[in-house]
Every structure is written in structure tokens, then in C-alpha cells.
Design a protein around this nucleic acid. Structure first.
Lengths: 151, 151
DNA sequence: TTAATATCTAAAGCTAACTTTAGATCAAGA
DNA sequence: TCTTGATCTAAAGTTAGCTTTAGATATTAA
């Protein structure tokens, strides 16, 4: 079986457009795999470039590093992701994207109906629902709107 | 001219569903207005409830406190926002929402075309474009996709 | 009057996701 | 061999957006 070529931390950094310190950080966090040379330097499978790309995209979508770690750990045998793995991960992504789009669409219509009326107060409109927050719950914020918002 | 009724910090906290410490924090940051009683306690115009609601919604949309401060400072005379002010602010919101939806839609199609092909590497796909980042630039990330992504 | 509750300030603490610093060591080229 | 340049570690610093703490004062209710 062919060995994946191993590359240096600087190589990964350059290829992904990030600082060396970030790659080292990820390696320390064990969110990307690495092995050591006899001299003590980290070396990485080339596929780590893909893995870092994935991390960056996921972060941009609002996933925390912990969540991303979970996504990646969910891969069978925690192996280096294959083409099929990426495909199934992208399906998870797609769901999240669609969910977020739905949330934003809902917010948009809520704003149209609610801020426009000038009543932006929590007890009346509940446009913002504190109990079920995007940022903390991740389960999808609910932006509630009364049927007939009052002035 | 009728005086707006002034309310305590605890009242604002309860009505907006937040901790007193948060309201105090916002007051210290001068993102919400307040005056002092002879005894030294802060009191707030009731309209601060709306202002806090606005802040919470905007944060949920990804605005930083600094950006929110700017949005609110842009109001004429930095006055307590009127119904019309809220309306025009909501238009700014709507633009942001639409922009973000467009970004996510773009990302979705990029994922379909790119992660599926298994080539998720920055130099080839540029699915993630480091130079023009949502989080830092706010100007709208560009998720670029080559015409014919390579395996 | 007394006790409980609310508020105050200033400073420190917290979390995530990093970067920076300082000093050491390793590897490669002239 | 000497000198860069790359890498290492551990610890501290950074930013945003808060909360917590500690001790003081104020306000309200009984």
C-alpha cells in the first residue's frame, strides 16, 4: 500500500493560507493528525490540507472547533477522510445551510411585520426569543411573531 | 412635552430577559442611554427595552457590539429611535439577511460541486477564500469555485 | 427601626480561538 | 563550519462579550 507523502508544518500553513501557529494549535488540539520526525518536528499527511480546508469552511458556517472535532471524529475509524466521507460530511453541511437559510428567511419576514410596526418590545412581539438561541443551542433559533403585533 | 417614564435597571433586565450585569455592561459601554438618580442608581427611559431588543436581534444576526453601536449612532441626533428609525434600520437588516442568504446559497452549490468531487483543497478549488472573509471583513465572503474542479 | 432587597464600583475571571514571546534546537546551504 | 531559517515548548497575551466577586451604599417593606 502506498504511503501518503508527509509534509512540514510550514507547507501546510502556506497551502492553506494560514499562520504556522494555527496549524500547530490544531495539531496540539488533535483536530488534525501529525507524527514526529526523529528530530522532533511535526509532519503531516498531505490530506491534512483538505482537513484544514474543511475546518475553515465549517468555521465560516458557524461551527465551533469542538463541533468540528465531533464531525470529523464521527468518520469511521476516525480515518483520514475519503472522497465518500467528504460527500457525507457535505450533506450534514447542506442541512445546516438550509436550516440557517430558513431561519434567516423567517427573521426577514418577522422584521417586515414587526419592526415596521414600531413595537419592538420583547413582551409584545417576542421577535427575539431568549430561551431558544442560535448561538448557544445551535438547534435553530425561533423567531416568534405574534399574529397581530400591536403598536 | 411628555416625559418618558424612567425605569430601574432591574426592570429592564427582567423585561428583556437578561441579567442585570448585562444591562449595566451596555450602559457602561454607552450603547444604551441612562441617567442617575440623586442616590446614584441608573434609571432608563422605557424605550431602552426596545433598544436592547434591537441589540439582541442584531447580535443574533452576527453584528458585533461595535457595529450595532454604529448603526444606532447613525440615527439623527442619536435620539431614541422612533418608529420610522426602526423601519429604516430594519431595511439595513434586510439587506444583511439577503446578503447572507445569498452567500449560503452560493456555498451550498459550491459544496455540491466541490466537496462531492473529493478535491477539497485550497489551491485547486478555492472553495474557501481566505482573502475575503465573512467574519473579519463583513463585506461578504466569496466562495469561489473553479469551473471544472479536478479530482 | 430593622431587615431584606437592589444597586453601586472596580477589578478580576471566563471562553473561544488564536497569536506572541522567549529561549532552545534542528536542518540545510555556502 | 558557520549561519540562516524552520521548528520546538511552555506560558503568557489578545479580543469580544460577558459574569462574578467583594465590599459599600441605597431603597423598600414590615
Amino acid at each position: 500500500m502506498p504511503q501518503e507523502p508527509l509534509v512540514s508544518i510550514g507547507f501546510i500553513a502556506k497551502r492553506t493560507g494560514n499562520a504556522v501557529s494555527l496549524i500547530r494549535y490544531y495539531a496540539n488540539q488533535e483536530i488534525i493528525p501529525s507524527v514526529r520526525t526523529p528530530g522532533g518536528s511535526r509532519v503531516f499527511p498531505r490530506s491534512v490540507i483538505r482537513r484544514v480546508s474543511f475546518i475553515l469552511i465549517a468555521q465560516n458556517m458557524g461551527y465551533s472547533l469542538d463541533e468540528i472535532r465531533q464531525l470529523l471524529n464521527a468518520l469511521p475509524d476516525n480515518r483520514t477522510p475519503t472522497k465518500d466521507d467528504w460527500t457525507s460530511l457535505s450533506e450534514v453541511f447542506n442541512q445546516r445551510i438550509e436550516q440557517r437559510i430558513a431561519e434567516l428567511t423567517q427573521l426577514k419576514s418577522s422584521l417586515a411585520g414587526c419592526i415596521g410596526c414600531g413595537c419592538l418590545s420583547l413582551d409584545k412581539c417576542r421577535l427575539y426569543n431568549k430561551e431558544d438561541n442560535i448561538a448557544t443551542k445551535g438547534a435553530g433559533a425561533r423567531f416568534l411573531l405574534d399574529d397581530r403585533p400591536n403598536l
